[in-house]
Amino acid sequence: MSVRPEEITVVPRGPEPGGKGGAYRAFGETLRGLRTTMSQMFTKPVTIQYPEEKTPVYPRFRGRHRLHRFEDTGLEKCVGCSLCAAACPAQCIRVVAAENDPENRVSAGERYAAVYEINLARCIFCGYCELACPFDAITMGHDYEMADYNRSDLIFTKEMLLAEPIERAPLRREGE
């Protein structure tokens, strides 16, 4: 079988050891590497002093969920419809609804969420719940620091999700 010229790949070989080539290999490449080191020594470091300093996140970053209230009435936006639970692929949302007492409303609709829990140990932060919610009651926040000592502490209740979160994750500024 004859070999066609375009099928031939030429493999260049390094210089033989010893001699000039050997010396270059011993020092030349090291110096080249050192040049990179030297040049970086005088630039600003990219490392962040976490946890004193935090990486800013993009506005649409999907962090820990938040439940919202109407600003004017203070009523919860969530009506306990469970659509978020239905949409959740990780099955980490549990909603138990109850009927509003007209004298003492919790939410604006007929029903409200008596129990609203998200198991953040299971959540995959896909944001489907946010998409499913017909009332924009649940959104994905910016908080990504959720480590804890205990798994059961990762089940966030309605009160925890409604509470104004301590804004720990800075938002990335325009053009940053």
């Binding site: 306990g80 419809c81 469970s82 639970a85 239905a86 909603v95 138990v96 609804a97 109850a98 009927e99 007929e110 029903r111």
Partner: peptide
């Protein structure tokens, strides 16, 4: 049964 559960629960 009012508001007790949804069909997927």
């Amino acid at each position: 049964y009012r508001f007790r559960a949804r069909p997927w629960d």
